[in-house]
């Protein structure tokens, strides 16, 4: 686990730099990395590449960029029905993972600032809490 964090540290620091050295975001991203390794990595894979036609990519995902609220909602309550990501239609359901609002904010911040993704608008606990089913 420590090794994973070390491995990602340059990337995290890079992201923090882009974010104007926001230390709060940096620690959220760090916590989010651990959540990702625990809950998401088995399907979405280590670099967020996903599996074409089975599990949508998170890296450079047009869906994620265009549908921030729906993406958070999907993590919070699960996803069902068809979804088009980078031109490919995905139909498998994602179950809710049982994460609390803070954990969802952290993992979203990690995803939004990894593998070529970057966002200058951090996801907050309040933003997650405000999204209902």
């Amino acid at each position: 686990m420590k090794k994973t964090i070390l491995l990602f540290l340059p990337l995290l620091l890079g992201a923090a730099n882009a974010m104007g050295q926001n230390p709060e975001l940096l620690s959220s991203i760090q916590r989010g990395s651990a959540i990702y390794d625990d809950f998401c990595i088995t399907c979405h894979l280590p670099s967020g590449e996903g599996v074409p036609f089975a599990f949508p990519p998170l890296a450079k995902s047009d869906y994620l960029i265009k549908n921030r609220t729906a993406s958070i909602k999907g993590v919070k309550y699960g996803n069902e029905g068809e979804m088009i990501v980078n031109g490919i239609t995905y139909s498998s359901a994602m179950a809710p993972m049982g994460l609390d609002d803070g954990e969802i904010a952290d993992v979203m911040n990690y995803i939004l600032n990894s593998w070529g993704n970057s966002s200058n608008d951090p996801v907050t606990v309040e933003e997650v809490a405000a999204i209902s089913e």
Binding site: D38, F39, P96, M97, G98, L99
Partner: peptide, 8 residues
């Protein structure tokens, strides 16, 4: 009552 979290 189940603990519905991750794979559980």
């Amino acid at each position: 009552k189940v603990y519905a979290r991750g794979q559980g």
